[in-house]
Amino acid sequence: MIDLRRLRVLRVLAQHGTITATAATLHLTPSAVSQQLKLLGRELGVKLLDHEGRLVRLTPAARVLLEHADVLTAQWERACAELAAHEHEVTGTLRVCGVSSALAALVAPVLPRLHAAHPRLQVEVTEEESADCYELLLTGQSDLAVVLPTPGAPPVTDPRFEQHPVLDDPQDLLVPDGHRLARPEGVELAEAAGEDWIVKTHHNDSYPLLTAACAAAGFAPRVRLEVKEWYAVSAFVAEGLGVCLLPRLVPLPSRYAVARIPLRGTPVPTRRLITCVRRGSSGHPAVGAALAALRDVAAALTAA
Rank of each mutant, 00 (worst) to 15 (best):
E128N: 08
E129S: 05
E129P: 00
E129W: 05
E129V: 11
A131M: 15
A131P: 02
A131T: 11
A131V: 07
D132Y: 06
D132K: 14
D132M: 10
C133S: 10
C133H: 07
Y134R: 09
E135Y: 00
L137D: 10
L137Q: 10
L138I: 02
L138Q: 13
L138Y: 05
T139S: 15
G140C: 12
G140L: 08
G140F: 05
S142E: 04
S142Y: 00
D143Q: 14
D143V: 12
L144C: 06
L144M: 07
L144Y: 07
A145L: 00
A145W: 01
A145D: 03
V147C: 09
V147L: 15
L148A: 04
P149G: 05
P151Q: 02
P151F: 03
G152Q: 06
G152C: 01
A153P: 04
A153N: 02
P154I: 00
V156A: 13
T157S: 15
D158T: 06
P159Q: 04
R160G: 13
R160M: 03
F161P: 14
E162N: 05
Q163D: 01
Q163C: 12
H164Q: 14
P165W: 02
L167G: 10
L167E: 06
L167K: 09
D169E: 14
P170E: 08
P170S: 06
D172I: 00
D172A: 11
D172G: 07
L173Y: 03
L173E: 06
L174F: 11
L174R: 11
L174D: 10
P176Y: 03
P176M: 11
P176C: 05
P176K: 07
D177N: 03
H179E: 04
H179Q: 07
L181P: 08
A182F: 11
A182V: 09
A182N: 12
R183C: 11
R183F: 01
R183Y: 05
P184K: 12
E185Y: 01
E185A: 15
G186C: 10
V187G: 09
V187P: 02
E188Y: 02
L189V: 09
A190F: 01
A190K: 05
E191T: 09
E191V: 01
A192M: 02
A193S: 15
A193M: 08
G194C: 00
D196S: 14
W197Q: 06
V199E: 12
V199W: 04
K200I: 00
K200W: 01
K200S: 09
T201A: 07
T201E: 11
H202R: 15
H203Y: 02
H203T: 08
N204M: 01
D205H: 05
S206P: 00
S206T: 05
Y207C: 04
Y207I: 03
P208H: 01
P208M: 10
P208I: 01
P208C: 08
L209P: 12
L210R: 09
L210D: 07
T211S: 10
T211P: 05
T211V: 13
C214S: 13
C214N: 01
A215L: 07
A215T: 11
A215K: 08
A216D: 14
A217V: 03
A217N: 09
G218E: 13
G218D: 08
F219T: 02
F219I: 06
F219D: 08
R222W: 02
V223F: 04
V223D: 10
R224D: 12
R224T: 15
L225H: 14
E226P: 07
E226Q: 12
V227R: 14
V227N: 07
V227I: 15
V227D: 11
E229A: 15
W230R: 12
W230K: 06
